[in-house]
Design a binder for these strands. Structure first.
Ligand SMILES: [Mn+2]
Ligand SMILES: [Mn+2]
Ligand SMILES: [Mn+2]
Ligand SMILES: [Mn+2]
Lengths: 218, 218
DNA sequence: ATAATTATTTAGGCTAATCTAAAAAAATAT
DNA sequence: ATATTTTTTTAGATTAGCCTAAATAATTAT
């Protein structure tokens, strides 16, 4: 089973769009891949013929077991390479996504397994996302968004969703990264923005948009 | 300037075939790329249009300055990744070529320069071939083939050309690798095979074919 | 010098991955 | 229930990279 980079990108994007077996729409996939809906329809037919997803014209589609398995291997490669780039080559967490977008398509399984060992089997990528193991198993850590936190209790940042280059950079400047300990001081009722405190630092106010994207655990 | 993997493979193959600005023929390039001569002609037209080589139909072709520059960057990436695979991921020197064949097409220059630094600027790849620097400069080390050696003087293996998977493996078994010290004991006049001696090992006889491919320096 | 052989190019086709424009189906609004 | 809007699919084209078969040029042998 070897798939083109393009097919792999489709599978990965579908995986991210379908949460727990929710149906995905042609337009949303087109948007997430920056492609035209007509191109998506073309590719869906091919992926269906290769038995990687369920697809009913006009109704939507979702990965089947095999499709998910393939998607998870690509995600594994993406995240392991991101970890390598940050931990070994000392790139910033806001710089690695594009490179990983290419590296994830390398075909050698032996290579990725050796890389995994070389990196000492990391559990999380630099953005706090879990790294699937060689069998595609994800270690689930229960995370909550900063938005739903009780006040004045310490939490650890364990992930950031959304992940625009700009946001990651900005968070970095405020010293908000994976592993940062913080507590929520207040939540402003008029715009849902959140005031947080990190030890030895001035308080920072985060908009609802940003707070929603920061994931923490105790 | 970004080129497809296919174009990069063409440029690299032409670079290896043309020694010092020697003309290359359509058939030899087709053979080295495992492609049909007609496909080579197609590609030559495109590479000529992109001003990467001189090409006169029926007469032959060779890379121009720009073409050589591009080829050397691909070779740099190939050899740095091979070094990484052997030194950091502990693959054997006979296992890394295929993987490097993919890795060499990654586009990020920042990535390869950081990798270079991470590896502490190696001069040679695992097969003893020199690694071009970021500007495409090759450090030339004068090597000779085992075939032309005087008897009973110690030399160091510094490279292996040819490089079939099988030969590399066989040499490995005989403890012949980059850095091995050896001396030639005898050269058999009837078939040009060569008898060599490595310290604390039984003598080994190498056919002319193999001896020719082993490069050494004092 | 001519014929035979070999090397190279041309002509014409195929597939994967994209696109635009038009048609058709589904969802939404009146 | 119809009409309008939105979503999705179909039809038809394009480009890169490859192929086979046929034509042509260059080389080699007689
Ligand atoms: Mn990708
Ligand atoms: Mn990530
Ligand atoms: Mn290659
Ligand atoms: Mn090499």
């Amino acid at each position: 089973m070897k798939y083109s980079s393009s097919k792999e990108n489709y599978l990965k994007a579908i995986y991210h769009l379908q949460g727990e077996s929710k149906m995905v729409s042609t337009n949303s996939l087109a948007a997430s891949l920056q492609a035209r809906p007509a191109s998506v329809t073309d590719m869906l037919k091919k992926l269906k013929k290769e038995k990687l997803l369920h697809y009913e014209p006009y109704l939507g589609f979702r990965l089947n077991q095999e499709g998910k398995k393939v998607a998870l291997q690509i995600i594994r490669k993406h995240r392991l390479w991101e970890y390598f780039l940050v931990k070994k080559l000392h790139f910033g967490w806001d710089e690695v996504h594009e490179m990983a977008e290419e590296l994830e398509h390398l075909t050698s399984t032996r290579l990725i397994d050796r890389l995994d060992r070389f990196l000492e089997f990391p559990q999380m990528d630099p953005h706090g996302d879990p790294i699937p193991d060689a069998n595609g198993k994800l270690s689930q850590l229960k995370q909550t968004s900063l938005l739903n936190l009780p006040f004045n209790r310490a939490f650890t940042v364990s992930g950031v969703s959304g992940q625009s280059q700009e946001m990651l950079e900005w968070l970095g400047q405020k010293n908000i990264r994976i592993g940062t300990r913080l507590e929520v001081r207040n939540k402003l009722p008029f715009d849902n923005s959140v005031e947080i405190k990190i030890k030895n630092q001035l308080p920072v106010t985060l908009s609802e948009q940003v707070a929603k994207n920061i994931l923490v655990h105790e």
